[in-house]
């Protein structure tokens, strides 16, 4: 497999002294969807901004499509497409005018551009809206337009920074579908920043988990999931003794017990073996079992564990609201 992006010892210290990246090493293989997964403030946008030559790195070596970032940053921009985290279209222009603008800046002749633009509008289902002002576009349409802009010069790599942020579930699913098809059809390499675990899991061939400027795990989603040992048995009981926690802890095969709200989260290697023993212990204790469920390893759980944020009730991450 061909390596198309390579970063070695990549660091970034912002002017205010903030160390956003503290030595990243990763490679992206050609034709794959590579996901950089992390909470807000982890350093995803910073990484992408450096790879796409939008900001300067502090240290490290970066190669994008065989071009050394230090030697020829301008050349890199010829082979890539970028979908920024925020909208970057001109609202006072129509969708078509936006694309024509970028085509002009990318050195495309107007004939080639017009043809490509029509083709993109067609594929994205934006044909009817091509000639209305972007300020009339819905959020989903704007995202598609951003993607169309990124695809304009037939890039070899596209960078997507949280592309489905603020999209409703239906538009998100549609967007994912499009990306998958795009990859299959064109063999394009996709570098995806996301803090959505489901997005990373559904879309990516390889995930790198980034936390506080460091990559702390990488691999295919399945393998990352398996780094988490065991299942969680979630029980709700009544009339338990104060030492209930300790009693369950001593059950053979139990690794850890955490009380979260009215639930006990029992972490164990194999829930099939441990669950019956737990039920038995509850009975012996004269407590009343009200609910029992098993949570199997998920990427969410793996993520929380790897980032050292522990596991919480029903695996809900706090990533949505966490700034920094």
């Amino acid at each position: 497999m061909n390596v198309i992006i390579e970063a070695k010892g990549l660091t970034k210290e912002y002017k205010d002294g903030k160390e956003a990246l503290r030595g990243l090493d990763f490679t992206v293989e050609e034709g794959k969807i590579f996901g950089l997964l992390g909470l807000n403030g982890a350093g995803k946008t910073t990484t992408m901004s450096i790879l796409t030559t939008m900001i300067r790195k502090t240290q490290g070596k970066v190669i994008v499509d065989e071009i050394d970032l230090d030697e020829n940053p301008n050349e890199i921009r010829k082979n890539i497409g970028i979908v920024f985290q925020e909208s970057t279209s001109d609202n006072q222009l129509t969708g078509r005018e936006n694309l024509q603008y970028i085509a002009g800046l990318s050195g495309m002749s107007s004939q080639t551009a017009d043809q490509k633009i029509n083709e993109l509008f067609e594929k994205m289902g934006l044909k009817e809206s091509a000639d209305i002002l972007v300020k009339r576009y819905s959020g989903g349409m704007k995202r598609k337009l951003e993607l169309a802009v990124a695809m304009l010069q037939n890039p070899r790599i596209i960078f997507l920074d949280e592309p489905t942020l603020q999209l409703d579930p239906a538009s998100r699913a549609e967007f994912w579908n499009y990306i998958k098809k795009l990859k299959e059809r064109t063999g394009i390499t996709i570098f995806l920043n996301t803090h959505y675990l489901d997005e990373a899991e559904k879309l990516c061939d390889v995930i790198a988990i980034i936390d506080q400027g460091r990559i702390i795990a990488k691999g295919p989603p399945d393998i990352i999931k398996n780094t988490v040992k065991g299942d969680i048995i979630k029980v709700k009981v009544e009339n338990e003794t104060p030492s209930f926690n300790k009693i369950i802890q001593d059950v053979h095969g139990v690794l850890e017990v955490v009380k979260s709200n009215s639930y006990y989260l029992i972490k164990c290697e194999n829930s099939n073996q441990v669950a019956p023993s737990v039920v038995l212990k509850i009975k012996e204790n004269n407590a009343v079992l009200q609910e029992l469920s098993v949570i199997r390893p998920s990427l969410e759980q793996a993520f929380l564990e790897i980032t050292g944020r522990g596991y919480t009730e029903n695996g809900k991450t706090n990533s949505d609201g966490d700034e920094n």
């Binding site: 939008m54 920024f84 909208s87 800046l105």
Partner: peptide, 21 residues
């Protein structure tokens, strides 16, 4: 305005020579 609306970012993200911009 182009800076605040993001179109400037888009503009400098193209291969265009930055002096031409």
């Amino acid at each position: 305005f182009d800076r605040t609306s993001g179109i400037m970012k888009r503009t400098i993200g193209t291969p265009a020579d930055r002096s031409s911009i």
